[in-house]
């Protein structure tokens, strides 16, 4: 299954794009998104363990299911304020 994923801040800079398409198993989860991102873009490895992943604008746990229609977004720890 292909999933469109949006990226922000340092992650976007490392990948060189604000949006990527990742391939994960058809009953895939947020954990699969993290693994697929690291495989497709090895330069993200130093950030990978710290990345936060949101599905449909909510923080998602590793076992959260991802659908082809899900809005999936990956980003580094936040630093607003």
């Amino acid at each position: 299954m292909q999933v469109a994923v949006l990226l922000f801040a340092r992650l976007k800079e490392l990948v060189g794009s604000a949006a990527v398409t990742l391939t994960i198993p058809s009953a895939g989860t947020v954990a699969d998104i993290r693994a697929a991102l690291g495989d497709a873009y090895p330069q993200t490895q130093p950030l990978l363990a710290h990345l936060l992943i949101a599905v449909d604008k909510e923080y998602a746990a590793p076992d959260t299911r991802v659908l082809p229609t899900s809005e999936v977004v990956c980003f580094p720890p936040v630093s607003g304020g």
């Binding site: 340092r10 630093s79 607003g80």
Partner: peptide, 24 residues
């Protein structure tokens, strides 16, 4: 500061830039 997905990038006087990502 803990939860809202906003990030700051420093533009330092020495010409370099640096995203601030706590704990990474």
């Amino acid at each position: 500061k803990a939860r809202v997905p906003i990030w700051k990038q420093e533009h330092w006087a020495d010409g370099t830039t640096e995203w601030q990502h706590p704990s990474s």
